[in-house]
Design a protein around this nucleic acid. Structure first.
Length: 476
RNA sequence: GCCCCCAUCGUCUAGUGGCCCAGGACGCCGCCCUUUCAAGGCGGUAACGGGGAUUCGAACUCCCCUGGGGGCACCA
């Protein structure tokens, strides 16, 4: 039975890279009919926060990822890890170390300065019982270190990279229990993957070097089998080519959600970062299609750049694939938050109807309909747009003609179409097109926006007239 | 500094020795459509980092170089 896990540290919100790791684990489990479990790696108590434990789960659910087991909090399993550490101590695979953090750091710095590799120098490896007692009596902190081999080669077979090997002499002894008594990532990770029967470990490539240590720990713990490892290429900022970070714009999934991106689009886009379907077909894929097509053998090797432009395109595609009712339901919370008491369900429904075919994000849809919720007393043509109005040929005549038309026409979307009135003024089709931005600005505040006749209809005759007349009066 | 991983259009990628003077998608450019802006339709621009080797034949195999990324904690 295939068993995989996503094991984030709750030290922040879920970001793009972690979400992709979660997604690939989930897709792999669902594709192969395996079990997907969620394990929270909160062994670093100081940096872990309950709100992130909750937030990560909410965000995963929002994305469309569910799990079969968990969440399992490592903070609730400390006794298990500590017992394992004791066993390693008893077997001689680990030893007590009384070096302070500062001492280790100083000796590391000295080693680097002398041209040697940093890393623990093994000073406490061969302490006698008497020496240990003496050191402890000094009140020194005690950590437990795992003893790595001094010779030989560590190797494992990565599912997407093949054999990965490194000399053991390059991997120094490392801490598995802190001086405050808390177990460290490597230990908890090895113990849990073993006890939970994890069969494939799918994670970011930044962890590839730590695999040797976890595997050594696992073997020392008595494991006779080894899970398969698959190290995913990193997702990097497309500009800097470096690891994604806040400095490079939004990386937290919640930010994308708040900016009006759909979970369908995010899942779709993230899946395409480091993986591609077998054929050159449609790249717009829903969760079912991704599950059906996904497998590890098609994961790429090189780091992938996060490209906002393609996400935007996909988000627009997904907005167009939603039914109008679904889209309205997604826009509603954002619109309510933005417009407060002015919120009007009928107007939002109408605006969403005309916005759907052109939108990039939900937030943009709300932006585009904002002119419908502004009081006439507060309505203003944007300064730049006022210039567009004044620059338009025969704008006074045009506004007068449109005002007259709006005063007298039937109040249907088709009848609101004032173009015939402008033709009567002697304007050509091209000239009418040239006048449109000014009219958009007069009614919507900007020289571009939601289709004008629908917008005027939604706005109502009186408010439309008020804005047109105000624009007329503002002319020099 | 040492170690590990990686290297096809601007970006995401297809490609596993001949089907490739390299295909798709996003972006960009142009045209069409058009109620502004979009969306949509059509067309275009654009890449195998360099050098050796193997082979009748290399984007694909091997070596070197260069370049990029990651890791070397009492974070995960």
């Amino acid at each position: 039975m295939i068993r995989v896990r996503f094991s984030p540290a709750p030290t922040g919100s879920l970001h793009i890279g972690s979400a992709r790791t979660a997604l690939f684990n989930w897709l792999y489990a669902r594709h192969h009919g395996g079990v997907f479990l969620l394990r929270i790696e909160d062994t670093d108590v100081a940096r872990s926060r309950d709100e992130w434990v909750v937030g990560i789960q909410e965000t995963l659910r929002w994305l469309g990822i569910d799990w079969d087991e968990g969440p399992i909090l490592q903070s609730s399993r400390f006794p298990v890890y500590l017992a394992a550490a004791d066993r390693l101590l008893a077997q001689g695979d680990a030893y007590e170390c009384y070096c302070t953090e500062e001492e280790v750091r100083e000796r590391n710095d000295a080693a680097v300065a002398a041209g040697r590799a940093p890393g623990y120098d093994g000073r406490c490896r061969a302490l006698t019982p008497d020496e240990r007692v003496a050191l402890a009596a000094e009140g020194r902190p005690r950590t437990i270190r795992f003893r790595t081999p001094d010779h030989g080669v560590s190797s494992f077979t990565d599912l997407i990279r093949g054999e990965v090997r490194v000399d053991w002499s390059l991997i120094p002894d490392f801490v598995i229990v802190r001086s405050d008594g808390a177990p460290i990532f490597f230990l908890a990770n090895a113990v849990d993957d073993l006890e939970m029967g994890i069969t494939q470990v799918i994670r970011g490539e930044d962890l590839i070097d730590s695999t040797h240590r976890v595997l050594a720990l696992r073997a020392a713990l008595g494991a006779t089998d080894v899970p398969e490892y698959a190290h995913l290429p990193l997702i990097v900022d497309v500009e800097s080519r470096a690891k994604l970070s806040k400095r490079h714009g939004a990386v937290a999934l919640e930010d994308f959600r708040d900016d009006g991106y759909l979970p369908e689009a995010l899942m779709n886009y993230i899946a395409l970062l480091g993986w591609a379907p077998a054929d050159d077909g449609d790249e717009v894929l829903d969760a079912d299609a991704l599950v059906a097509a996904f497998d590890l053998d098609r994961v790429t090797h090189a780091a992938a750049g996060f490209d906002r432009a393609k996400l935007d395109w996909l988000n627009g595609e997904w907005i167009r694939r939603l039914t109008r009712e679904e889209l309205i339901a997604r826009v509603e919370p954002l619109a309510r938050a933005r417009f407060g008491d002015a919120y009007d369900a009928a107007v939002v429904d109408g605006a969403v109807g005309i916005a759907q075919e052109r939108a990039v994000t939900l937030e943009q849809i709300v932006d585009q309909m904002a002119f419908l919720f502004v009081d006439e007393a507060d309505f203003r043509i944007a300064p730049d747009s006022q210039a567009v109005v004044e620059r338009t040929d025969r704008i006074g005549e045009v506004l007068d003609a449109v005002i007259t038309h709006v005063e007298l026409c039937d109040w249907t979307v088709d009848a609101v179409d004032f173009r015939a009135a402008l033709t009567a003024l002697g304007l050509s089709k091209k000239e009418i097109r040239g006048a449109m931005p000014a009219l958009y600005a007069a009614v919507e505040g900007l020289p571009r926006g939601l289709p004008l006749f629908d917008s005027m209809h939604l706005l109502g005759r009186n408010r439309t007239l008020a804005r047109l007349r105000a624009a007329r009066n503002r002319l020099p």
